[in-house]
Simulated assay, not measured.
Amino acid sequence: MSALHLVPPADDATLSDWLHVHNTIIPTHELSLDDARERAARHRLEVAYRDGELVGCSTVRPPVDGVATVIARVLAAHRGRGYGTELYGRGLDRARQLGARAVETVVLSSNEDGLRFALRNGFVETDRYLLPGDTTPWIDLRLT
């Protein structure tokens, strides 16, 4: 198996790939390309490819009051191969470089694979809530 090639979305093509992964995994909260551009200005985004094929993406929200948020997303066809672990590890390293003293993540409750991954990697649930207009709860988790 070849390693992942991780790149920040530096143009609309790679930003569209990040957006595709986000909107596929979070169908209840679709973003536009403009939304993704705005996120890229505030957060550290990366897109993951393996042999030129889109595999996943990550988001690191810089620390606020010492707490960073790290989100790793892997498309269903590529799960179970260690890509999530690689994306998460890289995001965790980035959060620590940015000065995070604690790390959180957020998972849509319908993403059972993502929730299992977070729990397996030492996260514990801290909150469950609905955003206005949503019917699927979000789950906040903190790394212990």
Rank of each mutant, 00 (worst) to 15 (best):
L15H: 03
S16M: 06
S16E: 13
S16V: 01
D17N: 07
D17A: 12
D17P: 08
D17Q: 11
D17C: 10
W18F: 12
W18I: 01
W18D: 00
W18E: 03
W18R: 03
W18H: 04
L19T: 03
L19V: 10
L19H: 04
H20C: 10
H20W: 10
V21T: 01
V21A: 00
V21F: 00
H22K: 08
T24Q: 08
T24D: 11
T24L: 03
T24A: 15
I25P: 01
I25C: 07
I25S: 05
I25W: 01
I26N: 06
I26Y: 05
P27W: 02
P27I: 07
T28R: 12
T28M: 12
T28E: 15
E30W: 01
E30Y: 00
E30I: 03
E30C: 14
E30H: 13
L31G: 00
L31K: 15
S32D: 14
L33E: 12
L33G: 02
D34C: 07
D35L: 01
D35H: 08
A36Y: 00
A36N: 01
R37T: 06
R37H: 15
R37Y: 11
E38K: 05
E38R: 15
E38A: 11
R39N: 04
R39L: 14
R39W: 06
R39F: 13
R39C: 01
A40S: 12
A40D: 15
A41C: 04
A41E: 14
A41N: 04
A41Y: 03
R42A: 14
R42C: 09
R42P: 10
H43Y: 15
H43F: 15
H43L: 05
R44V: 06
R44A: 11
R44H: 15
R44E: 14
R44T: 10
L45P: 06
L45K: 02
E46I: 09
E46A: 07
E46R: 10
E46F: 03
E46Q: 12
E46G: 07
E46S: 11
V47H: 11
V47N: 06
Y49T: 02
Y49Q: 00
G52N: 06
G52H: 12
E53N: 09
L54H: 06
L54F: 12
L54Y: 09
L54I: 08
V55E: 10
V55F: 09
V55W: 05
V55N: 06
G56N: 02
S58P: 05
S58D: 09
T59P: 01
T59E: 15
V60Q: 12
V60N: 07
V60A: 05
R61P: 01
P62R: 07
P62M: 06
P63I: 05
P63W: 04
P63T: 07
V64D: 13
D65V: 00
D65E: 13
D65P: 11
D65H: 12
G66V: 04
G66Q: 10
G66H: 12
V67C: 14
V67A: 05
A68S: 12
A68I: 07
A68Q: 09
A68N: 08
A68E: 05
T69A: 08
T69C: 08
T69F: 09
T69Y: 11
V70C: 09
V70A: 01
V70I: 04
I71C: 02
I71N: 07
I71Q: 11
I71F: 00
R73K: 10
R73N: 13
R73A: 11
R73P: 04
